[in-house]
Design a binder for these strands. Structure first.
Lengths: 248, 248
DNA sequence: CGCCGCAGCTGGTCTAGACCAGATGGGATG
DNA sequence: CATCCCATCTGGTCTAGACCAGCTGCGGCG
């Protein structure tokens, strides 16, 4: 494994019992991937099936796992290639930008939508506003070296940021803009889980469907205890990891 | 969706373009699952295939996604049933026990292995000991209401805890034991990512293979800056989420 | 009555082949 | 020479069926 943490607790195949063909094929393909460098082309599904003497669907099951684990990248019509290491995202209140810069890559954001909508009861509850109150919804694709890494949806009470739609440049940091309006971030609660991308999300991110994602839901508060924003961040599970520094 | 965060940014099917049959089937099955209560049996693969007029493999693709999302539970030979909500695990230096208790469930641990082994260079580097030095490896299954929720592997320098193998009860909290020896936890670094369970890990946890997991790798230090332990925790992605409280 | 074994459920793996759709390059045509 | 179209790569979806392996309940046998 290429992870800095080494392999599984006791890696690989169960001590006793039958091992599925797709898993043996996966092990073989991992060997290939390790020999080839990052970016090198992996043989096609049909060739691997012929080489191992198994059905193409069985090869696909092995490749699907390698895809989920972030060891290969696939794009319809193009050859499968060996993927590079994951990015590490610090778990702190700082913006996405810093984590990417720390990896020596160039962060970017692509605007998907900036719109106004009435708050549904769930959103209103999180932001402690009246249901139906105007809500700003900012959706952006997060880029690293121009490659989509995640999808970020921010919801803000429109009443608190009346000039945002005209003053804010969606290509820049929203946190910097909010701080510029005199609002201070005091604390935040972040929930983290694994989910699968929907077809729409997978499409926006240029990934296949059924790819596990890291879903981060954050609510930020100011020093007076008023909610500032709710952010739903969806990061590619095959390209992202998080790190937290914990005090005793 | 049953998540407390509501649905995807813009849920579901892409605005324009063809939708795969397996995704339409998934939507139908989600409707079924929502009508049935937690624990209720979902129709079998063969019956769903007949009902929707599609192949069984296509139904399996839909069910696989629902499994990864934690909406259903499956066990070989038994009927598929509707799953309950996920557990929330606080991101703090406290033990697994507290998070489970907070959910009103009963935590437990099942010993898999407690053994001594020489440190490989990677482990030695994390714990700042000599390669080949004796290492204690404690592997336990983490339970919630007797259901396996995760797999925890702890590595400790044997020289620092010479009495652990005789004094420590594997069914109790390791943190409590370590504190009892006079060692203080000062800080920890935790790395979080999504991975797939290996066949062995899936077997220990009673889940199918190819299920995305939350992998937490933690190194803890004492106030003198000496590493105390390295922990590799593997939590079922379909049953676990994490939460972090962040200061500004 | 109590136990055992098997029939018939369930999901898990695998096959061989079909067709669709994105990407690409080379050749025919203007 | 430039452009366009299509053959032919690639991966994505789907089928119908086979066989294997857990699990459960029921019927028969001791």
């Amino acid at each position: 494994m290429t992870s800095m943490w080494g392999g599984p607790v006791r890696s690989g195949v169960p001590a006793g019992g039958a091992v599925p063909k797709y898993y043996l094929a996966k092990i073989e393909i991992v060997g290939l991937v390790d020999e080839l460098g990052e970016g090198a082309a992996v043989p096609s599904e049909r060739e691997l099936a012929a080489r191992f003497g198994i059905a193409r669907e069985t090869v696909r099951q092995a490749l699907q796992e390698l895809l989920v684990e972030g060891r290969i990248r696939r794009r319809h019509g193009r050859a499968t290639v060996v993927a590079g290491p994951k990015i590490v995202q610090p778990l702190s209140i700082e913006s996405y930008t810093e984590g990417v810069r720390r990896q020596g890559r160039t962060p970017g954001r692509a605007l998907v939508a900036l719109e106004s909508q009435p708050a549904d009861p769930v959103q209103a509850g999180h932001l402690e506003i009246e249901p139906g109150a105007e809500l700003l919804h900012l959706e952006r694709i997060l880029l690293s070296d121009d490659e989509p890494m995640g999808l970020e949806s921010t919801f803000l009470p429109a009443a608190r940021f009346p000039l945002l739609r005209t003053d804010f440049d969606p290509g820049t940091s929203l946190y910097a803009y909010i701080r510029g309006t005199g609002v201070t971030f005091h604390r935040a609660t972040e929930h983290i889980e694994t989910v699968l991308a929907s077809p729409r999300e997978a499409d926006l991110l240029g990934t296949g469907p059924a790819l596990p994602m890291l879903l981060l839901n954050r609510v930020s508060w100011d020093p007076q205890g008023r909610p500032i924003e709710r952010v739903r961040s969806l990061f590619r599970g095959d390209r992202f990891s998080l790190v937290a520094e914990l005090g005793g």
